[in-house]
Amino acid sequence: MGCFHSKSRRQFPGYEDPVLLASQTSFSVSEVEALFELFKSISRSVVDDGLINKEEFQLALFKNSKKENLFANRIFDLFDVKQKGVIDFGDFVRSLNVFHPNAPLEDKINFSFKLYDLDGNGFIERKEVKQMLIALLSESDMKLSDETVELILDKTFVDSDVNHDGRIDKSDWQNFVSRNPSLMKIMTLQYLKDITTTFPSFVFNSEVDDIAT
């Protein structure tokens, strides 16, 4: 059995020991193994190479592999920690860990800041917020006049850019989300607490003897 499993898991570049991943995250060993079931199904949906590429990620997210979405692209790029154009299992687990209900709020805030800092230059600039707003409007078929878009941007920066330098830095963002905690709702996935019941087949594929939790 052990031989069979270790061979099959070698087909997953970036596969990491569930016990080690559990020690680095809020997940139990069983939950990491359940996530492996999810990872396997996503990673073989288009190309069976043991990795998740962007098309597979979009397919899992939208049930449509051709759906381009700025935010899904951003999430994919942040999950692709090694910047290889693919997500491996270790990075998948560690990235999802930020969305765990028990993950530190600070990690969630940092991740959301990176998500919205499209250029990755350490600031969320007005042009980036505008780009995201326009992407959201086109995604939701919502029509707003240019004037309204500019008014929304004005309001957003009045609310969040405390030092009025025209861009939102990390401390502006921390301050802003602490006053608007609803903005952090998307950073917590309750699903991650029930992952073993969602993917019960992990029990049959487990490599770990006597799973404790």
């Binding site: 899992a60 917020v129 959201l136």
Partner: peptide, 25 residues
């Protein structure tokens, strides 16, 4: 005239940010 929403409130409704669908089989 309705009160203006904050851009981030609108953005956070994007389907692309709702990772919950990854877990729906």
């Amino acid at each position: 005239r309705p009160a203006l929403m904050n851009a981030f409130e609108l953005i956070s409704t994007s389907q692309g940010l709702n990772l919950g669908t990854l877990f729906e089989k």
